[in-house]
């Protein structure tokens, strides 16, 4: 089974520059959180809930000039192909958590909410590649739903390099296991990178092509997220006017 046929088709029938099916919903948990979202990127499914700005639980979290963002990541035991119990202090989870915290600390207008805590909970229901990217998208949407002021969307996607030659956009698990995968988080419509994670070998001279397709993919994801946000906004507006 080859991941990229000579005709240019991948195992799920996509071409090199096609995203997987991207579905998102916001305000999925209106009563249990201030902001919530549900993102499906291919078969990767993530729920995100945001509470805040609120009183910090610990004195150590109080920052006089800006809000503190706290992220909790939980990977369900059934989220992968083989059921696996994960501890909350797993190194990989801590790394994901810290990355998300540091990314959103920069993009939220923290100075508007000094001495408060914004608590983000990310619950991963199914993993099929592009985990960090999907989490970034889910958190962005949940923050928007919570009404927390942000400079712009942070949209994430991953891209890889097949056989040292072809760049492929939006990898699933099978593809991720076989080739290097670059995950990026892009701010809005610009080319500013909030987050970049590459975990396997990639020839330096191929970086530009992989990065270019990833940025294009992120912009497309941003459009899709924006459409959903506006749709939801219009729907809420219609309900209020009635």
């Amino acid at each position: 089974m080859e991941l990229y046929s000579p005709e240019g088709l991948r195992i799920d029938g996509r071409r090199w520059n096609e995203l997987r099916r991207f579905e998102c919903k916001i305000n999925t948990h209106p009563h249990s959180a201030d902001g919530s979202s549900y993102v499906e990127q291919g078969n990767t499914k993530i729920i995100c809930m945001v509470r805040g700005p609120m009183e910090p639980a610990m004195k150590s979290q109080v920052n006089a000039t800006s809000s503190t963002v706290e992220v909790n990541v939980s990977l369900a035991n059934f989220s992968t192909f083989e059921r696996k119990k994960r501890s909350k202090t797993d190194k990989r989870i801590t790394e994901l958590k810290t990355t998300l915290e540091r990314t959103f600390n920069e993009c939220i207008m923290g100075h508007l909410y000094p001495r408060t805590l914004i608590s983000v909970t990310v619950q991963v229901l199914a993993q099929d590649g592009g985990l960090l990217a999907a989490m970034t998208n889910a958190v962005t949407l949940a923050l928007i739903d919570a009404g927390i002021a942000m400079y712009d969307y942070v949209s994430g996607v991953n891209a890889g390099l097949y056989d040292q030659t072809s760049a492929l956009l939006d990898l699933n698990t099978l593809e991720e296991n076989d080739m290097c995968s670059l995950t990026i988080g892009v701010i809005g419509k610009s080319e500013k990178l909030a987050l970049v994670v590459l975990e396997d070998k990639l020839p330096l001279d191929r970086l530009e092509s992989v990065l270019a397709i990833a940025i294009a993919g992120s912009h497309r994801i941003r459009e899709l997220m924006d459409m959903e946000v506006r749709k939801h906004g219009n729907m809420r507006l219609a309900k209020v006017s009635v």
């Binding site: 790394e95 810290t98 998300l100 600390n105 920069e106 500013k192 990178l193 909030a194 987050l195």
Partner: peptide, 9 residues
């Protein structure tokens, strides 16, 4: 680049 200041591509 685990978050932090955004920089241009």
């Amino acid at each position: 680049k685990n978050g932090g200041l955004p920089i241009s591509a």
